[in-house]
Every structure is written in structure tokens, then in C-alpha cells.
Amino acid sequence: MSQSATANGPARPSLVGRIGRTLLNFWGIALILVLWEALVVLNDFNVIVMPRPWAVFADIWANPGLYLQNFMQTAWVAMGGLVLGMIAGTTIAVLAWSSRILNGLLTPIGLIFSSIPVVAMIPVLARMLGYGTETVLAIVAILSFFPFFVFTGSGLKLLPAGSADLFSVFGAKKHQRLFHLALPSALPNWTVALRLASANAILGAMVAEFLMGTSGLGQMLHAASQAFNTERALGASVCATIGSVTLFVLVVSLEARVRERWT
């Protein structure tokens, strides 16, 4: 790379410069696709075992209603569960903040649940709550609860230097401390929880649907794998991936904006 090319790059984005930058940003993803293709070619898979990408998209194109319906189903339980878990986790974190005893009682429980594979508990919940959409919703809510509880809880204590003393000198009451100081301080951590929980929300919904075989993309994936319909299984995967990556990108940009403003 020549000195002048890098110097000119940011100032006047030429077509070549723009392509170059895109390549730099996405070379990792391109590499994965190339590796995949290479693996398919090297292993000499036939079309039935490993469909070419276009076959997967053709299946989606041929059955838009089926895909859309299942996608919407999974998307709304994932979002709904995420919101429920967010509300519950944040609320309990605030309650723990306001009471030293509650904080002491709950903190280790939160730690325990964030160090175990909670996804493995989905079958227990499914059996307990019964097979159905509400159960998927509850499972996503429970999966989302712990990141919000743990991260909001620690964020409420990450106050700017000296601000706690400042509020004492202001004679601030407890609710003023909460709304003017602790909650705003916790926002960056809260967005981290949002990122972690949303990466898990669609996964949790799909795993629950997959195990119970009731509805949504997970059920589609389950049925297709049972029937060795690889195109359909990969179609469901593609839909889940699109939904999950979109959500992730939105959340990451929100997180970046908060970080920008807060530090």
C-alpha cells in the first residue's frame, strides 16, 4: 500500500478506495464463505446432502407464506420475551439497589445463574409450563432476565467519580439518587445486557420451539431435520440468522451511541 493512497483515502473516497475499505471491513466474512465453498467442493457433496445456496433461497421464494408466518411467530415471542425479561431484570436490580439485604440475598443467585448453561434448563421449563407459545415466551423472558439483573445491578454502582458525595451534599433523597444518578450511570451497562440478551433471545426461542416442536422457525427446523429436508432446514436457519443479525446490528449501534454520549 502506497503512502499517497492511504493519505488520499479518507479525504476523497474514490470508487477504488471505497471497494478497498469494504473489503477490509468484510474480508473475514468473505473468508468464511470461501472456506464453506471450498469445503463443499473438496468433499464433493451432492446436491441432496448439501444444497447450493440458490436452492435454499429458491425454497424460501417458493414458500413465502410458510417462512413468513414462522419467522413472525419466532420474532414476536423472542421480542416479547426479551421485553418481559428486560422489565423484570431491571426492576429487580433496582429493588436490590434500594435494599442492602435484598442485594446481599440476590447477588450470588444472579452470579450462579450467569455461570451455568441456562439453555440446558429449557426442557425443565417446557415440562413445567406445558408445551405452547406462552412457554416459549416465558423461556425467553427467563433467559433475558439474568443479564439485565446482573449488568444493571453492577451498573447502578458505577457512578462518576465524586458524584455520590456531591449528591449527599445536595441533600438528595433516595429517589433523586436513583433517577438523577444511579439509573443514568447504569445505562451503558444496561445496553451491554441488551446486547447479550438479544443475541440469546432468538436462540432461546428457537431452541424451545425446536425441543417442543410446537411452532415457529424452531419447529420448522425440527421437522425439516427429521425429514432430511436440508433445504428447508437451512432456509429456517437463514431466516433466523437474518432476524438475529438485524437485531444485533440495531442493538450494537444503540450501544455505541450510548457509549459515545455517556463517557
Binding site: 467519580a161 456531591l166 451534599v169 441533600g171
Partner: peptide, 16 residues
Amino acid sequence: AHRLGIAFQEHALLPW
């Protein structure tokens, strides 16, 4: 009574 003003060395401004 909010009759006390104070400024700390670490300024303690709220960044948001």
C-alpha cells in the same frame, strides 16, 4: 436546606 455549595478536585460532573 440545600444551603451548601461544594466543588471537588475530580469535578464530579455527570457525563450524560
